[in-house]
Amino acid sequence: MPIAFKDVSHVYSAGTPYEYRALDHVDLEIQEGKMTAVVGQTGSGKSTLVQHLNALLLPTEGTVYILDRTIDANKKPKQLKSLRGDVGLVFQFPEYQLFEETVLKDTAFGPKNFGCTVEEAEKRAKQALQLTGIGPEYYERSPLELSGGQKRRVAIAGILAMDPRVLVLDEPTAGLDPAGTASMMKLFRRLNQELHKTVLIVTHDMEQVYRYCDEVIVVHDGKIRHQESSAEFFKDAHLCNEMGVLPPSLIRLEEMMREFGFAVPQGIVTEEQLAQWIAQEVKNHG
């Protein structure tokens, strides 16, 4: 069963002067096992959308179907806790949710809440910390004295330790350096491909979307404006511009070269491939 939104709306502060419709009759389907990017401008409703996935926010209208569960606006929701175990949601700047005395305890906090024994929880925590690149020498340190990037890794490990089937990340790489960003994105791709997790990632970084994600969902003004595979989406520079999305630099370079009359073939997705093609062209015409 895929994740599906049927005619979902979410209204904040309904019935007051501050009423605000963050989601407006959204219909959406997300395939399991894919890595999907949710893009859109600030205030477009991305964060509201992803918070429906683990029922932190409930729809004011419509129905959300997720992992064999149905969350309907008109019915009182059940099994919320087990849903939250199955859908791991990593918030923006998750390092602010760390609170335990040691890194290991904090990472094991999630699995323990979902009924794991202490030993099992710590085992899972260690696995998750290893995945995010936090070595055993950090296990007994206080999470509050780590660096910003390390805190982020520990916080994400805290969600991974819950072993969710669906992983939702709200701008997980905001504020990280390029190397940190790349290693994070590689990790999410690995989780998606090797452990077959469905990954949903809210981001502004089109380079990362182009490189790592299968699908792109464009959110605009609380509505789904576009949904397509990322390879197809970025192929069309006009469509990107229309959606208010700056295409990745590689695509822009290819576009520019075509304007100058070079017959750059479609389907070049990495800098290396483009460099190889250029080298070949130079040799052929040399």
Partner: peptide, 16 residues
């Protein structure tokens, strides 16, 4: 705002 944010983050980690 901050309290609500942290509440949501911890609820995502199974805090009831």
């Amino acid at each position: 705002d901050e309290t609500q944010r942290i509440m949501k983050a911890q609820e995502s980690r199974g805090v009831d």
